[in-house]
Every structure is written in C-alpha cells, then in structure tokens.
Amino acid sequence: MSSTRLNYWLEFAFTGGLAIALLGTGVERHRGSWFAAFATVLAGLVAFSFIEYLFHRWIFHGPDSMYRRGHDAHHLDPRGYDALPFFLPSAILIGLTLAFAVFMPMSHACLLGGAIAFGYVGYGLSHFAIHAMRFRQPWLRRWAASHHIHHHHEDANFGVTTPLWDHLLGTRYQGRKRPPAARDRADN
C-alpha cells in the first residue's frame, strides 16, 4: 500500500491509459456485431461492479492483511491518499485480459478488460469525489451519503459506484426502524 499523492494519481493515469488502450484495441480488432461489442463492454462494467463489491466486502473488510490495514487507514482518514501501488491494478488487468483471451476472441477480451479498467478508474474518481466534494444535486447527495454511511456502519453499503450488489446480497444499510407510535409523536 502507498499513501502518497503521486502514487494515488499515477494509479489513475496508468489504469486510465490502459482502459483507453484496451477499449481502442478491442474496437479496432472487432469484426463482429456491434451489439455483441456493446454487450461485452456492458458485461465488463457489471463485472467490475461485482469485483468492487467483492474486494471491498471480503478483502478490504476481511481478515487482517496489508489490504485490510490499508483500508482501515482510509476509514481513519477518508481524505487521505491510501491506494494500491500505482502499477498493480494495471498489471492485474493486463493479466486478466490475457486470461480472457484464452476463452474468447482477442477483441472481446480487450473490450471486457478495458471496460473493467474503465470501471476501476470510475470507481476511484467517484470515491475521491465522494470524500472531497459536497454535492448539490439530491441524487448525488443520496449516492454519496450511502458511502458515508458505510464509514459509520462498516458491515453495510460496500458498493461505492452502485448499490446493486448490496441490494442483491442483503448488505444495504436499512437504518433503525422507529415503532409507529414514536413516528406519530415525532410527526406532531
């Protein structure tokens, strides 16, 4: 783990460049249906949302490890620059794309890997914005609030970019339900 500002922003630059390169290569090599290419990119974005949830829930909030300790540091200082070493996400994504190429045409492997890389960059920038900005639009405020709730209830709201997997896997924060009599008194 690294907590330097340079590492934090280099990670976005490397992974963003990789996302553009993979998506561009996938489009350039694609010879089939454009609907299939679009579906592959969409599948990559959905896959990334699950990868985000999986890592956040079971690795960053899992057993003691360097990942858990790094994520704990983020919970202590949400505006800090704790991140993986800048080259690691890109190296993993290149390996993942090559693994996809064993099972599918290279164009689809690149589109899938590029979409996952793009999802990772989107996640990182979203997470940064949630902690650095105060949103005015109500839907953005609700979106950011979901992650802020996670910082106070670490067993819920693991999805940063989307609540999809929290809803499907039952980890969406529900809040405390007040009994009807207490709600009636509060309304009067």
Rank of each mutant, 00 (worst) to 15 (best):
G114C: 07
T97W: 08
V121N: 12
A115T: 05
S107A: 14
A109V: 01
M133C: 07
Q137L: 05
Y123N: 10
M106W: 15
H131A: 04
L98H: 10
V102Q: 04
R141D: 01
F100R: 03
V102F: 14
G122M: 13
L140R: 06
A132W: 11
A101T: 01
R142G: 04
M106S: 11
S126V: 01
H131E: 03
P105F: 09
G124I: 09
A115H: 14
F135A: 00
P138N: 10
A109I: 01
Y123Q: 10
H127S: 13
G122Y: 15
R141E: 01
Y123M: 13
V121W: 12
R136N: 08
L112T: 02
H127A: 12
L140W: 12
W143R: 08
F103W: 15
A145P: 00
R142E: 07
A117H: 13
M106D: 05
G113V: 10
A99W: 08
L140Y: 08
C110T: 04
F135W: 07
A144E: 01
A99T: 05
G114Q: 04
A132H: 14
A129C: 11
A129V: 02
H108A: 10
P138S: 13
S146N: 06
Y123A: 14
V121Y: 11
L98K: 13
F128P: 08
F135V: 00
H131M: 06
V102E: 04
C110I: 04
A145T: 05
Y120T: 10
R142P: 03
P138E: 13
G114P: 05
H131S: 06
G122C: 11
T97G: 03
H127K: 14
R142K: 12
V102P: 03
R136S: 08
M104R: 03
G119F: 14
F118W: 15
R142Y: 01
R142D: 07
H127D: 12
G124Q: 15
L112S: 02
A129I: 05
H108G: 08
R136L: 00
L140D: 03
M104G: 03
V102Y: 14
F103N: 08
T97S: 02
A132K: 15
G124A: 15
S126C: 13
W143Y: 09
L140E: 05
M106L: 15
V102S: 04
M133K: 08
M133I: 00
A144K: 04
G122D: 11
F118K: 05
H127R: 12
R134K: 05
A145S: 07
C110P: 05
P138I: 01
H108L: 12
A144Y: 05
Y120G: 09
T97Y: 09
A132S: 11
F103V: 14
H108F: 10
C110K: 02
V121M: 11
P138D: 10
H108E: 10
S107Y: 12
M104F: 10
S107P: 07
A99Y: 09
W139Y: 07
R141I: 03
L98Y: 12
L111P: 08
G122L: 11
A144F: 09
A117Q: 11
F103H: 14
A99V: 04
R136V: 00
G113L: 12
V102C: 04
P105A: 06
I130R: 03
